[in-house]
Design a protein around this nucleic acid. Sequence first.
DNA 1: TGTACATCAGTGAACGCGCGTTCACTGATGTAC
DNA 2: TGTACATCAGTGAACGCGCGTTCACTGATGTAC
Lengths: 208, 208
Amino acid sequence: MLDMSSRKGSLTRERILDLAEAAVLEKGFAATSIDELIAAAGITKSGFFYHFKDKGELAVALMERYIAHNDAVLADIFRRADELNEDPLHGFLVAMKLFAEMTADLPSTHPGCLVASFCYQDRLFSQEVRDLAHRGVLTWRKLFLERLNRVAEHYPPKIPVDLEALADMANALVDGGIIQSRVMRDKAILPQQIMLYRDFVRAVFLGA
Amino acid sequence: MLDMSSRKGSLTRERILDLAEAAVLEKGFAATSIDELIAAAGITKSGFFYHFKDKGELAVALMERYIAHNDAVLADIFRRADELNEDPLHGFLVAMKLFAEMTADLPSTHPGCLVASFCYQDRLFSQEVRDLAHRGVLTWRKLFLERLNRVAEHYPPKIPVDLEALADMANALVDGGIIQSRVMRDKAILPQQIMLYRDFVRAVFLGA
DNA sequence: TGTACATCAGTGAACGCGCGTTCACTGATGTAC
DNA sequence: TGTACATCAGTGAACGCGCGTTCACTGATGTAC
């Protein structure tokens, strides 16, 4: 259990982060003003600077929280898939199905990926933030690669592919699918792309 | 031949757009100031406002130019592939190879996709800009879908997939691949992902 | 249990800088007659 | 060929607003003895 009484877990602080994340995904970090956040949160500017020493620290907190949340969601999906399945390939395919369903169940289009958003505003952020994003993507790669390696042990690939690239493909398709969904205003695109990824992984290990 | 003496094709104007595009892809639109652009372009602020009535018009011009350039690049790749090939499937596969090689030959990581950048700063832009991005993505979808439909006529798919989704996958993987390349500081990721897309399309129509 | 002090979670007012925008103006080139 | 006018591609100075940041302060709660 997390210590919710610590400064990092303060309710007001979490509220600011919620509002900031939503605003950043819609307008970008530079265009998200502290004024608008405190107006929405119902505190004063000094209240904001009590929680974050400057705007840069808000960026760090946003990225930290986003990465942690993302990792937890992914771990949960794989855990649930593993409960339903012994076989590594079918476990992987079930996980992708669960993932696609999860994104399809969102009320509107996916709110967006903070890593993608920040990567297009790179120069605004400290090295710390860039390293967090880097580690976040690396975690995804490792998690998928580990699974794919286990699959490959049981199912020798029918299509010769670099498994690390195949691992990266998941993340790339999610980020790309979110962008397509947003630009086309069609929330179905993201889950569709995840299911296509699933089709490809199946073909790699089981053949067409 | 374009009329280079018209206002739209003015050299100074093009120079501003070049500088703005590079800056926007690094820091986002809101954080790209007119001051910095005119300093780099060597003109005064009034000179900028001679070419663009306000900052919003700069956004429109950037997106128009980017979409047109992108369409031209894609058309050129398919044209070159068609010259080398009669068969629609092999023409498509050659085109993807050319595309991957093109991104691999860039001196550093891909500078970025303006559509992706703008989609994460959506609220900053007019409906006109959003519509341009929408039409840009639609053009890619139609271009790929047309090609895939022609392939499917000769090669009945071995893996049952929605061809429109398969068309969208190309764009999604490019956008996602660019993000991965940037965040991981590894320019090899983007061409790798394009080649994986190529592998998938081949498997869909030829089997594993 | 009472008192002293420390920490938490903020308030309120002020500051200066950079931003996008406006306006009156200008020298060089192009066009009409 | 000369003159009048229009357009092109800007200049220079000013303006006001919003932004992130700072600083001195405060009431409520927690802790030590």
